[in-house]
Design a protein around this nucleic acid. Sequence first.
DNA 1: CATTTTTTGATAGACCTCAATCATTTTTCT
DNA 2: AGAAAAATGATTGAGGTCTATCAAAAAATG
Lengths: 353, 353
Amino acid sequence: MSGATLSDVAHAAGVSYATADRVVNKRGNVAQKSIDKVHDAVARLGYVRNIAAANLSRKHVYRLAFLIPTGSNAFFLRVREQILQTARHVRVDSVTVDIVDVPAFSVDALHSCIGQLTGYDFDGVAIVGLQSGALEQPLADLRARGVKVIGLVSDLPKEFRSAYIGIDNSVAGRTAARMTGLGNRDRGGEIQTFVGSLDARDHAERLQGFRDVIAADYPQMTVLDPILTKDDPTVLRDAARHALRAERPVSAFYNVGAGNVGLIEAIRETTSSRPFCVVHELVAHSKQALIDNHIDLVIDQRPDVEVNRAFALLRALIDERELPPMPDLVPTIYVRDNLPAETFKPAMETQTT
Amino acid sequence: MSGATLSDVAHAAGVSYATADRVVNKRGNVAQKSIDKVHDAVARLGYVRNIAAANLSRKHVYRLAFLIPTGSNAFFLRVREQILQTARHVRVDSVTVDIVDVPAFSVDALHSCIGQLTGYDFDGVAIVGLQSGALEQPLADLRARGVKVIGLVSDLPKEFRSAYIGIDNSVAGRTAARMTGLGNRDRGGEIQTFVGSLDARDHAERLQGFRDVIAADYPQMTVLDPILTKDDPTVLRDAARHALRAERPVSAFYNVGAGNVGLIEAIRETTSSRPFCVVHELVAHSKQALIDNHIDLVIDQRPDVEVNRAFALLRALIDERELPPMPDLVPTIYVRDNLPAETFKPAMETQTT
DNA sequence: CATTTTTTGATAGACCTCAATCATTTTTCT
DNA sequence: AGAAAAATGATTGAGGTCTATCAAAAAATG
């Protein structure tokens, strides 16, 4: 099976161990003749380098960095928590992890953070990215230094990262629409949508996906133009209040972005029947709202799964081994009945009672 | 950081390396005094054994076995496929995997399979279990030999396995009910249910969960007694045809078990509007049926995720290290919009400049 | 032929396991 | 009690696989 070792190879090739090592690790200074002999032996014996032994030998530690937006956004707090947990667990495998705070939504800030990365020598970094050509230069520099880069949750320019881990936001929007349609197909009516900002690519994509599905499959419903919330709970609360009090109330709410606390607050005040309500990201308050029947569905992107994959993927990339099999990441639908037991609850959320 | 090595410990404890080794690996023949000194030093230095080095040293390979029911059940074919994929990928980490075929649903067969396991010395086994006291003896034997055992998809007697990886079927049923309720709350009507067998614990649990939620939250709907299908597509097809042609057609179908091909066939023939339709397990045909709008929802248990976890968990158990953080497994809801791409492709393109 | 340059080989780590050996204490027997 | 046998405790050394360094041999150069 996995038997062949490098000395077997060396032996079979009729060269010394050191020469075989030079060939397989491309250290140079080997005669072409020897190179061929070794390659031949490698192929014949099916040699694969034992990564554990190699790492042991050179006291290698995997240095990983995660660039995560700052702020009190519950979703990213959850991401951070998951990174920390996993980091703690893989410490025994000689993996160190740094979480780098990046001011949210700023290309400049991200640019400079990535630039600074070259100072420390990380083996791999996962970046909550932005789509901007400005990032290409520092990313190229990283790559030139052999650092593996992946996009997490939000992608980077495609040619400058090795992989992307995250959901397709258009799919997320479509899914939200499908559920809204199912829940209202007999009623029709209007859907009030909320977005943080239409400049945010993910928000725009979700909204577009949502509109597409409603238009195609549930023509009896109309999607109202989104209210811009800047992901601010207060804005959301006021807008929702207003919509709820309208003389002809809408039949559904769909919040594309964050700030659900506000939305939920507005709904909680409502005495009459509330609209069908779909939001994104399962965090403490959205979970509670599901349980309390204040909202109907949460579309989640499973940051826990994403973070796990980021680790697995980075290690595979760093080791330059075959990438692990990874089934598509798809938006997960939560209702009050299939909630996971423990959801990370950020400390600051505790006073929101 | 993770610096301390065993010779550091030995040194700090003032004993020889071998003595320290005996203590931390519980090989016996050490005076209590030395044991204490070593334990003390371990605690002080925060020593953790380097598993990679240990495995290297004794040429350890992880021998894993998966006991999976035979048959052409699409779900278990999917499980098998995922095991094979993962196995191929972890071969380079010295992990060997055997899939053992077990005649489905037979306690006797499972009993004898588990019994045979003691012959080969596996380090860990994952078993698609059954709840039966009869299994306790062979499981106890396995454990006595130091084999780690986990339940997969369907649990084993609790005291005889280290962990269970699978969804809560009652939650799955409740989730199905919630969705059915959402999709029909304005219509009411009757729900025709189908089960493979009420002796199958998972089927019974799902059905019960389903009934509970409908009764509690959607009283305008009634759940008809389940039709027994033995998971046979033919039976399902005929029963569904019959129900579809009834003068007062039901408003929803819920199939708790397998055999969806038959159900889908019956629905496909229908020209008039079909009932709201929920089934379990995403496989080729249920996926296609979603796309074709023949059914509305699939509740899935993500066997890919489960298998991945099984591997991670078994390795952690075998190494006797802390178990990795694992968020709850919950039933996943698929609609036609959030379907994963067909093939398990390794995570994307890698640029190698 | 002497000097560079290229190629090769030997070997000391890295951290651990395990069997074999040596040293000491305890038990047993006359 | 004294000697032999047994049990227990501690030490050594040989792996396992790879990396990386240094010295030796071979080839190329002027």
